[in-house]
Design a protein around this nucleic acid. Structure first.
Length: 887
RNA sequence: GGGCGGGUAGCUCAGUUGGGAGAGCAUCGCCCUUACAAGGCGAGGGUCACAGGUUCGAGCCCUGUUCCGCCUACCA
């Protein structure tokens, strides 16, 4: 016998080991079955599971388990990302604590250290995925820096280079002075800040006056090589071509005219610093200006900064301002909102920095990726994200892919030290064309996202032509958060189309971001994160998973509330307990009838109304669940199942069959228990993708297993596992009306549930036959001692009443409650109905409505009018009778 | 600067072609009825942000306002 309460701990470990030992998660490289494949968004090896992963993994696992049960050759391919900068930062921090750094160690030793770190810590996140129940094929686990993937990276680099789509050049890029590396545009996070706009006065070289420029970064004036004004700006037209002298350092620069300058902004004159500002960079090129780099890689001032050399950039800003002020050159300071770029790995403010880097010429790749979505080859769900995708793709700029770090895919480019030759090669070259063996490989590594862009095919064996590749590419769906739509999804699109000639996935499902209660992104630095492992520990993985699924409405962020997890833990407990109830009653019958037999038309099994009703509901629920999952409506699927299991199966069906189970009719008992077992088994199957552990545990306790050794490979239910039956559905509703009617009278008048009541039901529209055939349901569920039912019954005078669709219910109150209370209750009801009547009659009095509304709507309204009138009349009569009694 | 999403019950959120607003939790009342008190039964609770418009009819469609969140941008 199961415990009274559900305790998830042991159960989760037990079944996860069982599944993996049996190899249920393993995909077949070749199969007759249709394939279904998801590649996991590889978490960083440095990472630990956060709630975003938890959501991501849960949704993927739901789809994978659903498809696996539905007969697909299913592959969920797991793995991790080497996360260049992040991982290097972690290991460097370790080294720092030990009083050393990577430069002391040297490149090879350092990389060795990182691999050591990876070996001992890299599986943390993988193990956490397992605790979430992820049914990945672990035999296919990949790492972005493993041998196969590295080969793919080199293949891609070389081919793009050969096609002229990869080039090297000196440009202004984003530089993180703390990580000491270039970053792509995407790796810079902008943050709005209340800044200042400083007005600096530059004297004209000829002594004829001065010119004032405005800037947010005053220290960059040290690198100014011009001042620009708009050619149309009459204020400055006489100054173009003249020179000004930079204060403090006394350098002469020219005043130039450029249309870029906005005369409205600041003073209309712009200081031009070509080596430290993207606009100025362009202007510098247009006008052939000098590029003076005033910074070093670590953010301190360079030789070119003259007296400020060696100062930190922010220290320098302070000093420059002070010196300018002292010299009378700081004319004004105004508040100015601006956005400042930060490194997405370490939050340090990034600098536009001139350096030699590798780039991907991306427009040609983007064009194909745009086309693919535009033409519906790849579907993005929800569709709203397509706009963002197009917008980004259409305005895309070349991708800086080189990083000045050590951990990553080293750029496969060698420079001959004897001649000028540049060798780009998949394999390490031994000698140059010139015969020299003195080759030096490029020091830089590739952007981590370069390798993850290849993930959907590199993990399946590419560039080799493998069975996996043939079977599983294109993959079925990519499930991820929108935060990496550009970083990753867009780039996979480009690379997949380019190198496979086919889309990487059929669907992209973009799920919400999990935020805290204030709608803030959860993050370590804010300390507002919810630890998923804490959730699984406290409530069990299944409850947590179900919560995430129930939250996952399309196109809306999740503001996570722990209370809701608690609610779903109660749901698990409910399921657990109905299972106990089933076990207890199993012994009542000799043999459980097979579900297939129960649901077979003409099987000859005598099913009760309740049996037929729950089987009808089951058929609908099977259909609705699958259709919701097919459209990625996870929250709908979850709530359909919740509603069905708790309220229909537990609250109604179990209660309805109790009288049969405790009765003497062996045949009815067998039918009821068998139906209960069947419906429960199907419900477990439907729920399994959402809550794999508890459903497996309970399924294993069921007597007649149809699907084999494990629920996770049982066939997913379809409508054929239920029995559609409109008639029973309609009849059951009549019975339920009678029960809820009596319960309502009892509840509102505070009559103890234990007290048995007499009830008189005046019926219409054939309800009498249905009710009379099902007296037992009503007497047990509504706790009645006597039931009088008919189209023409004698109505008790002093009674609580309820008016329903096809019946009027009377519960004699003699001695039970005071009549005044019931009159008060009825006048409340009457008020409600009278408002209804008013509402409907107003509509019908409107000529426009009668003329223009569709016939069906008009008819419905008229029917309502009649029904309301009847109800109101009945209530008034009942009140009158009560008043007579009391009066 | 541009774009996107949102403002629905005390809280967290659903609401799929426009026909009288729903769930879970919380609240209140009655119950320890032998699957479950992590439970059962019953009940209360909403000017669907605001203002216009289209329509016989608007939470839903259109316009504007406002508040919140996010994305994006070569905003000196």
């Amino acid at each position: 016998m199961l415990d009274k309460r559900y305790d998830p701990k042991d159960i989760e470990n037990k079944w996860y080991s069982f599944w993996t030992e049996k190899g249920y998660f393993k995909a077949e490289a070749k199969s007759e079955k249709p394939s279904y494949c998801i590649v996991i968004p590889p978490p960083n090896v440095t990472g630990s599971l956060h709630i975003g992963h938890a959501l991501d993994v849960t949704l993927q696992d739901i789809m994978i388990r659903w498809k696996r049960m539905s007969g697909f050759n299913t592959l969920w391919l797991p793995g991790t990302d080497h996360a260049g900068i992040a991982t290097q930062n972690v290991v460097e921090k370790d080294l720092k604590e030990k009083g050393t750094d990577r430069h002391d160690l040297g490149r090879d030793k350092f990389i060795e250290k990182v691999w050591e770190w990876k070996q001992s810590n890299g599986s943390t996140i993988i193990n956490q995925l397992k605790t979430m129940g992820a049914s990945c094929d672990w035999s296919r686990e990949r790492f972005t820096l493993d041998e196969g993937l590295s080969a793919a990276v080199r293949e891609v680099f070389v081919r793009l280079y050969d096609e002229g789509l990869i080039y090297r050049g000196e440009y202004l890029i984003n530089w993180c002075p703390r990580c000491n590396t270039a970053l792509s545009d995407l790796e810079v996070e902008h943050e709005d800040k209340d800044g200042k706009l400083y007005y600096i006065k530059y004297n004209l070289a000829d002594g004829s006056g001065s010119l004032t420029v405005a800037t947010t970064r005053p220290e960059t004036f040290l690198g100014d090589t011009a001042v620009a004004v708009n050619p149309e700006d009459e204020r400055y037209s006489g100054l173009i071509g003249k020179k000004v002298i930079l204060p403090l350092i006394e350098r002469e620069i020219e005043i130039i005219a450029d249309e870029f300058v906005d005369s409205e902004f600041g003073t209309g004159a712009v200081k031009v610093t070509p080596a430290h500002d993207p606009n100025d960079f362009e202007m510098g090129k247009r006008h052939g200006l000098e590029f003076i780099n005033i910074l070093t890689g670590n953010g301190s001032m360079s030789e070119a900064a003259g007296p400020y050399k060696g100062q930190d950039r922010f220290e320098c800003r302070k000093n420059v301002l002070k010196d300018l002020e002292d010299a009378g050159h700081l004319e004004n300071t105004k508040d100015h909102d601006m956005s400042v770029g930060h490194c997405y790995r370490c939050r340090t403010i990034v600098e536009p920095f001139l350096s030699k880097q590798w780039f991907v010429k991306i427009k040609p790749l983007a064009e194909e990726a745009i086309k693919s979505v535009r033409e519906g080859d790849v579907k993005i769900i929800p569709k709203g994200w397509e706009n963002s995708y197009f917008d980004w793709m259409e305005n895309i700029r070349d991708w800086c892919i080189s990083r000045q770090i050590w951990w990553g895919h080293r750029i496969p480019v060698w420079y001959c030290q004897s001649c000028e030759e540049v060798l780009v090669s998949k394999d390490d070259p031994e000698k140059c064309k010139c015969g020299s063996t003195d080759l030096k490989q490029d020091e830089d590594v590739l952007d981590t996202w370069f390798s993850s862009a290849l993930w959907p095919f590199s993990t399946l064996g590419w560039p080799d032509n493998t069975d996996d590749l043939n079977t599983f590419y294109p993959t079925s769906v990519l499930i991820t958060g929108f935060d990496i739509l550009f970083f990753w999804v867009a780039r996979m699109m480009m690379m997949g189309l380019k190198f496979m000639g086919k889309r990487p996935f059929d669907h992209v499902y973009i799920h919400a971001l999990v935020r805290d209660e204030h709608g803030q992104k959860m993050s370590k630095s804010k300390g507002n994160g919810i630890d998923p492992l804490e959730m699984t520990g406290r409530y069990g993985t299944d409850a947590f998973r179900f919560t995430l699924a129930a939250y996952a409405a399309q196109g809306r962020d999740i503001k996570f509330s722990e209370q809701r997890v608690e609610g779903y833990r109660h749901f698990l407990n409910k399921i657990w307990n109905v299972s106990r109830f089933i076990s207890m009653n199993m012994e009542q019958i000799d043999k459980v009838i097979e579900g297939s037999e129960i649901c077979r038309e003409g099987s000859g099994i005598r099913l009760s109304l309740a049996d037929r009703w729950i089987l009808d509901r089951l058929a609908s629920v099977c259909a609705e669940t699958s259709s919701a999952l097919g459209e990625y409506r996870f929250n709908d699927a979850a709530s359909i199942l919740y509603q069905f299991v708790w309220h229909e199966l537990c609250d109604w069906y179990v209660e309805l069959i109790k009288p049969v189970l405790y009765g003497e009719d062996a045949e009815a008992k067998a039918a009821a228990v068998s139906t209960l077992v069947h419906v429960f088994e199907i419900a477990l199957s439907l729920l399994h993708p959402f809550m794999p552990f508890v459903t497996e545990e309970l399924w294993q306790h069921l007597p007649c297993l149809r699907g084999g050794d494990s629920l996770c490979i049982r066939t997913y239910p379809t409508t054929a596992d239920g029995l559609s039956d409109d008639k029973s559905h309609a009849e059951m509703e009549i019975v339920m009306d009678a029960i809820t009617g009596i319960r309502s009278i009892r509840g509102e008048l505070n009559i103890a549930p234990s007290l048995e009541l007499k009830a008189v039901i005046q019926t219409a529209h054939g309800a009498d036959a249905v009710l009379n055939e099902n007296l037992l349901y009503i007497s047990k569920l509504a706790k009645t001692s006597e039931l009088v039912i008919g189209n023409d019954v004698s109505i008790p005078a002093n009674a609580g009443t309820a008016v329903k669709d096809k019946m009027e219910i009377f519960v004699p109150l003699e001695g039970l409650v005071d009549v005044e209370a019931e009159i008060a209750r009825l006048s409340k009801d009457l008020k409600k109905v009278e408002a209804d009547i008013q509402f409907v009659e107003k509509k019908l009095a409107n000529k426009n409505f009668v003329d223009k509304a569709p016939a069906a709507v008009l008819e419905e309204t008229k029917t309502k009018q009649r029904d309301y009138a009847e109800t109101a009349l009945a209530i008034r009569e009942n009140m009158a009778k009560l008043k007579q009694c009391s009066g």
